[in-house]
Amino acid sequence: MSFNLADVETIYAEDPKLKRENVKSLSEWVEQQPHLPEITELQVILFLHSCYYDMEAAKTTIENYFTLRTNSDLFHCATEEMIKRTLSMSFIHLFPKKTPEGDVVLLMRLLDRRPEVYVCLEHLKVMTMLMSLYFHQYGPANGMVAVFDMEGAALGHLTRINLSGMKQLLYFVQEALPTRIKSVHYVNTIPMTQQLVALLKPFMKKEIYRMLKFHYSYDSFYECVPKKCLPKEYGGDLPDVLTLQEGNVKNLMDNLDFFKWHDNQKVDESKKVLQNKNKKSFFSLTSAFKKLEFD
Rank of each mutant, 00 (worst) to 15 (best):
Pro37Ala: 04
Pro37Arg: 03
Glu38Tyr: 07
Leu42Trp: 06
Val44Ser: 08
Leu46Val: 12
Phe47Pro: 02
Phe47Asp: 01
Leu48Asp: 12
Leu48Glu: 11
His49Thr: 03
Ser50Phe: 02
Ser50Tyr: 01
Cys51Arg: 04
Tyr52Val: 13
Tyr53Cys: 02
Asp54Val: 12
Glu56Cys: 01
Glu56Leu: 00
Ala57Glu: 00
Ala57Asn: 00
Ala57Lys: 01
Thr60Val: 14
Thr61Met: 15
Asn64Gly: 06
Phe66Asp: 04
Phe66Ile: 04
Thr67Val: 11
Leu68Asn: 15
Leu68His: 14
Thr70Pro: 05
Thr70Ile: 02
Ser72Arg: 01
Asp73Pro: 00
Phe75Trp: 02
His76Gly: 07
His76Tyr: 09
Cys77Ser: 15
Thr79Trp: 09
Met82Gln: 01
Met82Lys: 08
Thr86Val: 08
Leu87Asn: 07
Leu87Cys: 06
Ser88Asp: 14
Ser88Tyr: 07
Ile92Pro: 02
Ile92Lys: 05
Phe95Glu: 03
Phe95Ile: 07
Pro96Ala: 13
Lys97Thr: 00
Lys98Ser: 05
Pro100Cys: 03
Asp103Phe: 13
Val104Glu: 12
Leu107Ile: 15
Arg109Tyr: 01
Asp112Asn: 09
Pro115Thr: 10
Val117Pro: 04
Val117Gln: 00
Val117Arg: 00
Tyr118His: 05
Tyr118Trp: 03
Val119Tyr: 13
Leu124Trp: 12
Lys125Asn: 14
Lys125Ala: 14
Val126Asp: 12
Thr128Ser: 15
Met131Asn: 07
Tyr138Leu: 09
Pro140Trp: 11
Ala141Gly: 03
Asn142Glu: 15
Asn142Thr: 14
Gly143Phe: 06
Met144Phe: 03
Val147Arg: 00
Phe148Tyr: 10
Asp149Lys: 05
Ala154Asp: 13
Ala154Arg: 13
Ala154Asn: 12
Gly156Leu: 13
